[in-house]
Structure formats: structure tokens, C-alpha cells
Design a protein around this nucleic acid. Sequence first.
DNA 1: AATGAATGAGCCTTCATTCAT
DNA 2: GATGAATGAAGGCTCATTCAT
Lengths: 212, 212, 212, 212
Amino acid sequence: MSIESAETRLRLLETATQVFAEHGYATTTIRMICGRAKVNVAAVNYHFGSKEHLYREVLRYARQRAYEKYPLTYGLEEGATPEQRLRAFVHSFLLRNFGDVRNLGFGTLTMREMVEPTSALDMIVDEGIRSLFEHLVAIVRAILGEDADEELVQACSRSTIGQCTFYLFSRTVMNRMAPEQQFGAEDVERITDQIMLFTLHALRGLSGKKTD
Amino acid sequence: MSIESAETRLRLLETATQVFAEHGYATTTIRMICGRAKVNVAAVNYHFGSKEHLYREVLRYARQRAYEKYPLTYGLEEGATPEQRLRAFVHSFLLRNFGDVRNLGFGTLTMREMVEPTSALDMIVDEGIRSLFEHLVAIVRAILGEDADEELVQACSRSTIGQCTFYLFSRTVMNRMAPEQQFGAEDVERITDQIMLFTLHALRGLSGKKTD
Amino acid sequence: MSIESAETRLRLLETATQVFAEHGYATTTIRMICGRAKVNVAAVNYHFGSKEHLYREVLRYARQRAYEKYPLTYGLEEGATPEQRLRAFVHSFLLRNFGDVRNLGFGTLTMREMVEPTSALDMIVDEGIRSLFEHLVAIVRAILGEDADEELVQACSRSTIGQCTFYLFSRTVMNRMAPEQQFGAEDVERITDQIMLFTLHALRGLSGKKTD
Amino acid sequence: MSIESAETRLRLLETATQVFAEHGYATTTIRMICGRAKVNVAAVNYHFGSKEHLYREVLRYARQRAYEKYPLTYGLEEGATPEQRLRAFVHSFLLRNFGDVRNLGFGTLTMREMVEPTSALDMIVDEGIRSLFEHLVAIVRAILGEDADEELVQACSRSTIGQCTFYLFSRTVMNRMAPEQQFGAEDVERITDQIMLFTLHALRGLSGKKTD
DNA sequence: AATGAATGAGCCTTCATTCAT
DNA sequence: GATGAATGAAGGCTCATTCAT
């Protein structure tokens, strides 16, 4: 593969990430992408085979870049406590999904795929979401205690991640309800604190009941 | 308007609710709807003017029916405590959004609209979500105490509703991750309990800190 | 189906017959057909579903019209001799396939399909060619004698129909070799005589050998 | 031209012969040919200028090879009788056109060109078919007698070659009608016999009438 | 000399919409 | 009032060809 080829491919990938994130798979047209990337409409089929293949590559590309920058253990040191690991989880989740303009695509793409699944959702689940959730479950279990009821652990994990995803999914609604208070990259720290505050009180409360 | 006309209109509305909920606005075609409703392809434009107008009517129609059946105070008696009112909120939210096959459309449609807003989102926010959220905020404030910090009240409200919406937004993913454990109408009670358990521990913890 | 619909459908069918005969399936575009038929490009898909379906309908339509006008027993009276029936076969074959400007399509379409088969060839064979050939075989058997060797009967049938098809397949070449002697509708009688002369001498010779 | 260049050119020619014969001019894509020949897509235009030029070269190449291997006088000795020369004509025709897998292309290509002429048909006629037919006419005249009516000679020649071409043109149909009896290289001898039997009886009968 | 990359024209098909009854 | 027929715009994709190295 020549240098130009790789460049064009990458430009298509970057552009497509934005356009797919903005309009969704169905509404996005190849001509939109190629127009913005300043390449011929045939370029997509040449480099990726089809619109669908391009889309899958975009999903992979966005995820990879997001996790590279903000891994699940973002900012964590060796021997961190479960609470610290939970905070890193929440913090990196928010950063990954909308903490950075350049990574904006990832959260939106995943969200769209969850709401209006294409054949790519299986890939997303298998290559990302499953291990993400299992990572969280392990932390929650550590906090609740290893002998905590499994169903409780699962439910608390859902409650925890649900608080995080809310800021992603309801962004459009929140912006309309309180336009003066747009959630953005600069709010990530504060939101992290709030989610941690809420969650730790809940988990400690539930953990306490067990040990008593 | 003749009786047949009204019937056709209604049948279109019902069918369109299902089809839009299943496929989303962009992917749904007028022929899908008319085919399933067994009416002429021109019927949509005749009765509703355009695909978009039909869609807006569908949103209105689905919301109205959902709230009629499951109001925010569902199952609540006079003089209920804040905790009871919170439970009614969570319970009715889950029922309204996916507690009933006939109402399945509402939650899915709202969710889609949040992720990929059309001009109808303003309507949805103004006519439903805003008051829904304010209702929740009032309950949370009552639990945390009237002198609780407003930002804390807001954050806790988001954490609370985020747990609820999670079951809606992540349905497709959860089904793929644990196919044997599909969340449905029969799980609403249990999920309500779990969310309440988590949330009340959090709120009580936060409330306790204040009074201390 | 309204009258206009039937008219449009028929016009498309007639036009498509000509265009497919002129250019072949692959080279023909829907725009060629619709342009000549003065209808929108979407009309083909509306009335026939696809280019391929239209093509199959064209093949059926052309065959039906050709056989209606020139059946295998064209000009034949009751109690005709095998020789007379053979002459009717050859004569009607030539007339059907290029004896008439209006029927020009049928022969050309069949010929094209034989040389460059599409999925429609099976249909052509099953619905037309098979019975055509069996009809000929029966006549040849009657001339050669009922106890004639089956392989001989088959071979002679092939030799007979091969003479007929030659005038169809080699038309383009003959026109180039002897432009002054174009084979057309006015030559059908003479060609029929020539084929009959050749064939009857052959069959009688082969038949004579048997009886001796 | 370097050696590799000549090799690539030849490989393209060989491959293209097969592909054009299999799919026809219109349906064949340059990528099919280059893919099978394991060369770059630009190679066709580089070595031959265009798809059409390649096609013409293929026709020339296939004809040349076919006639080299099976000339019109294939297997004939000096002083052969007209009947022997006729047999050599028929025999070599069949061998040339589908007697050999390696030569399969020639018959099919010529046939396709006859049914859907390109500008290459003139070349084919001028450089091959015309002399082929004149060769046959001379033989037929010799058998019928030098004073035979010219029109009769021509007609008998057409009837003779028509029997031969039939096995080429109707191959796809015969295979569908009697799949167990595929005509191939191993049947050439038998078919030659059958055509000769039929034709000689016809010609002798017609010749006899003259002399009587 | 030879190739991978890129192009623009064109194809079939689909769609929401409008027309004419 | 209601419908089958028809439309034009657009979409994804394919192709022979050309460009730039």
C-alpha cells in the first residue's frame, strides 16, 4: 500500500467517523463523506468495499483511538483501591465518550448503534462492551464484598453505568432543557465527582447491610 | 370526516407507531407502513400530509396513550411519602417505557428521538420530559431535605433517572450479552426494587451527611 | 389494473422486446427502454419489479405472439402426410423467427439467449424449445419409419433443424458476405423449398436403406 | 519489448480468450481477466490500449491457433475425392470449434460475434469465414457436378454447414434438454459420421436428379 | 516499463411524493 | 374521498479508463 493510499484511507476514515456520528448510518450517504473528504465517490468502494464495510472500520477505528487515549485504568497507579478503580472507570468512560472533541465520534456512534442496531452491534458488544461491563462488575464486587449476591452485583453495576450513559444519551434533551448548562469536556471532573458520590454512598450502604 | 376515514387514520397511526419503533424514522418506508396497515401508499400523504407529519403525530399519540395508562403517580395514594412517590416514579417510568407490548412504541420512539433528534424533539421535551424531570427533582429534594444544595439535587435526580433509562437504552446490548436474561414486562417489579434499593441508600447517605 | 396501466405495461413490453433484441440483455439499459417508451425510469420497476423480470416477461410475450401467428402446424390441413407436416414445421419456423418485422424480436431473443444464456434460458427450453424439438422428432420418425434407430432419428432431427437455425444465426455473416442477397421475409418460401429438397432427399435415402 | 512484457501480454491473451468465451464481451470485465491472469488492472490498457482492442486481438489469436491445429484439409491426403474432402471439412470444423478444450474459445467467440456483432465481425468474415464458405461451396459443386445450378450449390452448402454450426449454437440448449448427453470432444467422430451420412444422401439424391 | 490509486460516468433500484381519475 | 399509476431525485455500487509515480 502506497503512502497516498494510506493517507486517503485515513482521511476517509476520519471524515466518515464524523459524518456517521452526525447523521447515523442510514441517513449518511457515501457522497456526503466523499464530498467532505474531497475524494471521488468510488473511493469508498475502492478502499473499503462498501458503505457497510467502511462503517464497521469506522466503529473499530473510533473505539481503538478512544481506548488508547483513555483506557479503563486511566490515571490509575499500582495497588489502587476498588474505590479508586471505580473512579477511574467512571472518569475514563466520560472522557472516552465525550470528553474530547476528537473522540466525540466514539460515544455517539456506539449510542446510535445501541438504539438503532445494524449488523455491527454484535461486533461492538463482542469487542468492547462485554469486557467493559465485566471490568465494572469486578470492581463493584470488590466493593460490595466477594460474597455479595451475584444478582445484586449485577444490578449495582447496571445502576452505576446507567448514571454514566445518561450523560451521553440525554445530552440532546439536557441541552434543550437547560441550554445555559451544556455538559461538555470541562464538566467531566465535576460529573465524575457527583456520580462517585452517589454511587459510593449506595454501594457502602448495601455493603454495610451485608456485613451487619 | 367519515367513520372509515377515521378508522383508516387510526390504523395508520397504530401501525406507524410499531414500524417507526422497530426501524427508526430513516429506515422506515411509507410502503412498509401502508403495506402492514393494508391501505394505499398514497394514504399517508392523504391523511397526514407527509411522512414527517405522520411521525410527529405518532410521537404525540404514543406519549398520550402511555401517560394515560401509567401516569407519574401510578398506584399512589393520597399523603404518600417522598419514598413512595419516588417508587411510583420509577415504577411508572419502567411500565410506561417497556412494561407493555402495546406501549412498547413510546419508549423506543422517545429514545430514538433523543439520539437522532428531529424537529419533533422540542415538542417531546416541552410536552413531556421537562415536567417529568421537574417532578423527579421535587421528590429528590424532598428526600434530601429542602435545604439541600440545588446542584446536588439535580445531580442526584440525573443519577436516579439515568438508572431507569439505562434499561431502555441498553436493551439491545443486554440482550446480546445475556440472551437468557431478557428484560421485559415481567421484570419491571424486580428492577424497580433494585433501583429503589440503590437510590435510597445513596440519597439517605447524602441526606445523612447534611444533617450531620 | 386500470386501462392506463395496461397500456403502459404493454408499451414497455413492446419497446423492451425491440431494445433487448437489438442490444442483448447486458447492454440494454432501463433508460434506453424507458426513453423510447416515453415513461419514467421507475416505471419498469413499478410494473415488472426489475430489469430481469421485465426481460423474462418479454421472452414470454414474444414467444406467445410468434406462436399464435405461426403455430407448428401453420397452413396444415387434417390428415396431412409426414412430408407435409415437415414442410409446415420448417416453414413456420422460418416465418416465426424472421418472417415478419413485428416478430423479429422472437428469433433474435431466443438466439441471444442460446449464445449468452441468462437464468431465463431454462424457462425458454422448458416452455418452448423442448416441445418444438419433440414435435420435429416425431415427424422425422414418421418419415424414417417407426422402427428406425432412435439415435438416427435424433441425428436427422438435429440436421434438419440445424439447416433452419442457420439462417437465423448466420444472418449477420451472410449479409456481409453477400450484401446483395439479404435473407428476409420474401425469401422464406424459397428457403423452405431448399431445406425441404435437401432434407427429404436425405431422409428418403436413409429410410430406403432401412427398408432394403 | 522485454521478455516479461511479452509473457504478460500472452498470458493476458490466453486468459482473455477464456473469459470472453465464457461471459461474452459485455459481461466480461477487465478485472475478471486481470484477476485470473494475476496482473494489474492497468495492464490491459497498457498492453492493448483498451478492452475493445484486447478483444480484437483475442479473436485473431484464437482463430489463428485453431486453424493452425485443424486446417480445412485436416487429415487429408493428396488426390482425395470430393466426399473425402467434405468429410475433412466437417471433421475439422467440429474439431476446431469444440474439439479441444484449449481451442474451446474460438468457436464460442465466433458464435458470439455473429449474434452480437462488434466492429470485429468484418475482420472475422474477411479473414476466415468467407474463404471457409467458398472452400465448402467448391466441394459441394464437385459432388453435385460442375454444371449444377449455382443457387442449388449455394443452398446445399448452407444446409451442410448449418448442420455443423448447429452443434455449436445449440450446445447450451442441448445440455439442458438432455444433460446426460453432453456433446464434447469425444463425440466429434460420431457427429461427423452422422452429418456426412445425412449430407451425402442429400447431395447424391440431388446429384442423381440432375444426371437423370 | 509497469502499477496501485483514483476518477467520472453510468447502472439498477428505491423512495416520498404527486397526478388523474 | 380515496386510490392505483407515475414521477424525479437520489443512493450504493461497478466499470473502463487515466493518473502519478
